[in-house]
């Protein structure tokens, strides 16, 4: 299991990276492994507002569906359209396959650093 140090993590297993004025969001290695084969993803549209602690989309694995919970509030500035056709990228490279970029960030939940998140996952798993 991989927990890159340069990222921060939510307790609902999203990773967050600040890039310029925006926030990039994806799902962690632990999340993809728990989900199993991801076969489908529902994404918001550019310009949609997102709210801390609320779903901004969902991922379906063969087994089940899981909401994607937004760790920040703001406006969606980009979505990773590649994932619509190839959601399995979330399994293959969870930290390469970003899901959305959020601009005009107004609020951010409390995020965990890599070591704390790893410990959190160990307790959950």
């Amino acid at each position: 299991m991989n927990f890159p140090e340069e990222l921060r993590y939510s307790k609902s297993h999203e990773w967050v990276k600040n890039e310029n004025d925006e926030v990039v969001i994806g799902i962690s290695d632990f999340a993809q492994s728990e989900l199993g084969d991801v076969v489908f993803i529902n994404l918001p549209q550019e310009g949609d507002s997102v709210t801390v602690g609320e779903a901004f989309g969902d991922v379906e694995s063969v087994k089940a569906v899981s909401d994607l919970i937004c760790p920040v509030s703001g406006v969606v500035s980009a979505i990773n359209e590649e994932l619509l056709d190839a959601p399995e990228k979330l399994n293959r490279a969870p930290y390469g396959a970003w899901i959305i970029r959020v601009a005009e960030v107004s609020e951010t939940e409390e995020l965990l650093g890599s070591a704390d998140y790893e410990a959190f996952c160990a307790a959950e798993g």
Binding site: G36, D37, V39, K63, E88
Partner: peptide, 12 residues
């Protein structure tokens, strides 16, 4: 076993 490391899609 619900799945092996290859995953459900590969097993299918």
């Amino acid at each position: 076993p619900v799945q092996y490391p290859d995953g459900i899609v590969a097993e299918h």
